[in-house]
Design a protein around this nucleic acid. Structure first.
Lengths: 340, 340
DNA sequence: TTGTAAGCGTTATCAC
DNA sequence: GTGATAACGCTTACAA
């Protein structure tokens, strides 16, 4: 129950001033003379005073923390590093302002909504980061109704419902990928995408259809749950077509790696007969044999950007939606022109 | 500044009772009649009352959160999934009690100590999880001086300085590995270990020396920073020895994968001339060609166990240090008897 | 069984 | 420029 607590009034008593003077001094606010301020700061430091967040929150409603709800199932987590990198970037930037990251887990959408509503109702966090936005996502509506809670969405601004978003330039990226395949001479390209409900899958779907249509390429697309298993199934299905695609783009690295195995098993050589490209680079893509051509994004930097945007919003600034620089394509051994 | 707030006194007013009655009812404590309790609960529900954590913390010193400091550099994070799995396990179990996980970032040990001292001084979290314990780690001393703050260490109990620890059974695991190599007929085995400062590296070092000595095997060990780069360098160094080892154990999956590449480059065939084993299984080990024999641990389950232990300690229980079940060795294609 | 009131540590509004 | 004093929402003696 007891903690090594040095309160503002302890400091006030020791410095021989009032608690409000101490508060002003410690928060660098006007209302005290330079002399008392110095004295207070010295005493506070000597006594080892630390602000009590709970008290601070109660009085001015700021908990110095931003919130994030984890919903991924553990299976996916053990395989992908995106969330971890995002967290690393977020926390490293938040730390500069003494903010922390509050993580809660939700096993389903209902549970996540409960957590978010709770945060909104009680001010449990100063701002919220929302990822994996779906089409018609109830979270968008929820935060639209509560403009008092700063929120940043990691999704295309077209699905953010007017809320602030940090987006990927999916259109440019799709253009880059399709162009690359086209230049290599591929006429039939396919994409093994993520879950259809995810808004960024939707955005990519549209972008791909547009880009392939423009170049008059044949394009097919299957949706998966991102798992290597479902990736394998879709790959097999595609490759057993009478006229199979000669280039396949995978919405994550894991499926791309598993696709290389599948192709090998089916006796299809990569990249001579089939080009494989991963959306999202990783160590996996680098060390695979053959190494896998992949889109590289700096997720840690993106996490930092998220933190800065959220801190800005909490600070009352009018933070605008932004689009990240388009991803870079790292050319490796899994893609190339058709041979034979 | 304003939030959709329904306070206890709002509920009290609406239900026509006192605020203390509401508090008792809402917390399921004695002091109110069943009738008023029912009425209060109904009214509170209708009004959408939510507990305000800040106020709760201020009054009873419980913030419903456990803390963890991230120190890993971003490079390592993007490659390993251990921390993410741990977080997933932690948060999923904490959620059951309505607890959240508070993460802060520290770029060095000094910064981490500051965060921890802050948490201790202000009660910023109800408990702390400590990972990557080093020999003579100052954090152990810090928490020894503050028994009021529940803390759980992820390390061998021999280095926990009397604090509660959740350990791996490194001794049994070392035994398992050395035995396995011995049975395959290997006489010279090596280990590419993690950083020497880490206590679990130290524990493993000792265990390996013991086990290999017992079986009269030749054993050498290099220490790395866990990166594929340093793993590669050590592997090259070992393999260029006049009498190189015929089995190498790597302290993580990434280095093992990179070792397979290195061996291939040097014209050494795996597993015929060299067995490679990874300490920590992952998707990487599964899909690598050849697939890599690895020690499998259920990190998510470990995260859950951590949460339960910490919640127990917060609850005032006398939680004892525990040792996890020994890891399981998953036999794959990177290990086998010497051929030729 | 109830209600009243005193804290918890901080910020903010007052008089002085 | 300064120091009381009232919030903030909740818990918990203590009194009724």
């Amino acid at each position: 129950m007891l903690k090594s607590k040095v309160t503002i009034s302890d400091v006030a008593k020791a410095a021989g001033v009032s608690s409000s003077a101490v508060s002003y001094a410690l928060n660098d606010k006007p209302g005290v003379s330079a002399a008392t301020r110095d004295k207070v700061l010295k005493v506070a430091d000597k006594m080892g005073w630390r602000p009590n967040m709970a008290a601070k929150s109660l009085s001015n409603a700021s908990v110095q923390s931003i919130g994030m709800v984890m919903t991924y199932d553990t299976q996916v987590l053990s395989v992908e590093t995106y969330t971890m990198e995002l967290i690393a970037g977020l926390t490293s930037e938040l730390e500069k302002e003494g903010y922390s990251l509050t993580i809660r887990y939700a096993s389903n959408q209902q549970a996540e909504m409960d957590v978010l509503r709770d945060w909104i109702a009680t001010g449990g966090v100063d701002g919220v980061l929302l990822t994996n936005i779906e089409l018609g996502d109830p979270r968008v509506e929820l935060f639209s109704e509560h403009p008092e809670m700063p929120v940043l969405l990691l999704c295309d601004s077209s699905v953010a419902g007017g809320l602030t978003a940090l987006s990927d330039d999916e259109q440019s990226t799709a253009h880059l990928l399709v162009d690359y395949c086209h230049e290599l001479g591929h006429q039939r390209i396919a994409r093994i995408a993520g879950p259809e409900e995810l808004s960024h899958t939707f955005i990519r779907d549209n972008a791909f259809m547009e880009e392939t249509a423009e170049l008059d390429l044949q394009y097919s697309c299957f949706h998966t749950d991102y798992s290597p298993e479902s990736g394998r199934k879709c790959t097999e299905r595609l490759l057993s077509l009478p006229k199979p695609p000669t280039a396949i783009i995978y919405d994550n690295d894991v499926m791309a790696v598993s696709a290389v195995r599948t192709a090998k098993k089916l006796g299809i050589s990569v990249p001579d007969q089939l080009s494989i490209i991963a959306w999202d680079d990783s160590f996996l893509c680098q060390v695979n044999m053959p190494s896998i051509t992949a889109l590289s994004r700096d997720v840690v930097a993106r996490g930092r950007a998220c933190a800065r945007m959220l801190l800005g919003m909490i600070d009352g600034q009018d933070v605008k939606s932004t689009t990240d620089a388009p991803s870079e394509l790292v050319f490796r051994d899994s893609s190339g022109p058709l041979v034979g």
